[in-house]
Computed example of a mutant assay.
Amino acid sequence: MQKIGKIVVVAAAALSLAACGQDAKTEPASAPPTAAPTSDAAAPATQSKGRECTADDIKTTGKFGEKPEITIPADCDPPKKLITKDLSEGTGNPAKTGQQLKMNYLLVTWSDKKVLDNSYDRGETFDLNLGAGEVIPGWDQGLAGIKQGGRRLLIIPPDLAYGEGGRGIKPNETLVFVTDAVTVPGNQG
């Protein structure tokens, strides 16, 4: 009986770890306290397509507040620098370092072009203190200046994301987010 109890505890712990990205109260895969350092040695050998993608190459659907879809093309390479593009402007004061933001997001990984995580399905925003290192550097940098009601595309290279991988992210993975600024302090409504 004691042996069965141990197996149940181990199985429950494994299920808890596997489901951590699904719990609305846990940090999503998009928001680690810090990013892991990068290593070119772990980078997969891929043939260059001859050009880096731009924000205009990434196709998105949906309006602010709606779960978006992201389509990453196969005919260009992931960008090596952070790219941001406002898909809708929003109104009011722009977000500044030190402010507590409430965001919705959808994450697609570049290598397999699949949705890895999103807050829309959970029905709860993701809260962060902008610039405090609570999230990957690509979010702290890429969300600066977003306005309440704004939707922004973020294309985040590995050195501003998870570097060598972790939290369900492959090593040297480029991340593509559509983010909605639900609340930016200093704005009414």
Score class of each variant (00 low, 15 high):
N104K: 01
D127I: 13
L101I: 11
L106K: 04
D112A: 08
G189C: 01
Y120F: 12
F126V: 08
D180V: 03
I156L: 00
W110Y: 11
M1Q: 14
A74N: 13
T91C: 00
D117N: 14
Q2L: 14
I7K: 06
T91Q: 13
A18T: 11
L153D: 04
G168T: 09
L153M: 08
G50N: 08
T179S: 04
V184G: 00
K25V: 09
A144E: 15
D56Y: 14
F177H: 00
F64D: 06
I155S: 01
V184K: 00
A43K: 15
V9F: 12
S16V: 14
Q141K: 14
R51P: 03
I7W: 07
D86W: 03
G21M: 05
I72A: 01
R122K: 15
Q188R: 12
S111F: 10
A18D: 06
Q188V: 15
V135Q: 14
N104G: 03
D23M: 15
A18H: 12
L116W: 04
P28T: 11
V182W: 02
A43F: 10
L87H: 03
V9S: 10
M103F: 02
G165Y: 04
N93C: 02
G50A: 01
G133W: 07
L82K: 09
D75K: 09
L143C: 10
I70M: 00
G138N: 08
E164T: 15
L154S: 03
P44F: 00
P137M: 08
A29C: 06
K85E: 10
K170Y: 07
